[in-house]
């Protein structure tokens, strides 16, 4: 990304996930999804930004980031799906739900939203085998309650 695009990309992201937002900023969320889809480096950069925010101890900030993730998975293309479908990103989600890592201090709402998203992706994106593998591991470890 050229520096100018970088700044715009980051500004859009932080606007869409700002903890000071009263409600979900759908304009900001949609603008971010559009931008990340256009830029070659968009998907990997977006997943790094999202992973960091999703691990925030602030519930509202994490929920906004998960909403951005959910929207982008619906509206963005295969390049973003493939990036989210890598263990490099899935491991960051797993850390949030796992008691061995961040799970014990993460709000229940955030943990159930992550598991709900992962489950929906196992149905909607069956070719992303790593998502299924990660979800099955969480089930085996009893982190996913049927």
């Amino acid at each position: 990304l050229s520096p100018a695009l970088d700044v715009l990309f980051l500004e859009t992201f932080y606007k869409a996930t700002n903890p000071l937002n009263k409600d979900l900023d759908w304009d900001g969320i949609n603008a971010f999804c559009e931008q990340l889809n256009k830029e070659l480096e968009g998907p990997p950069l977006a997943t790094r930004l999202l992973a960091h925010k999703i691990q925030s101890p602030q519930e509202w900030e994490a929920i906004q980031a998960l909403t951005v993730l959910e929207s982008c998975m619906k509206s963005c293309g295969k390049r973003f799906h493939d990036e989210v479908g890598k263990f490099r990103f899935l491991n960051e989600l797993i850390k949030v739900v796992s008691p061995k890592y961040l799970g014990s201090r993460t709000p229940e709402k955030v943990k159930s939203k992550i598991l709900e998203l992962m489950y929906s992706w196992t149905l909607g994106l069956p070719h992303e085998v790593k998502i299924l593998e990660a979800y099955q591991m969480l089930k085996k470890q009893g982190i996913v309650k049927c």
């Binding site: 890598k86 263990f87 490099r88 899935l90 491991n91 061995k100 085998v129 593998e133 591991m137 969480l138």
Partner: peptide
Amino acid sequence: TVSFHDDSDEDLLNV
């Protein structure tokens, strides 16, 4: 399902 080893990725975190 066993995923192929993808060099551009990490291994699954075991918890």
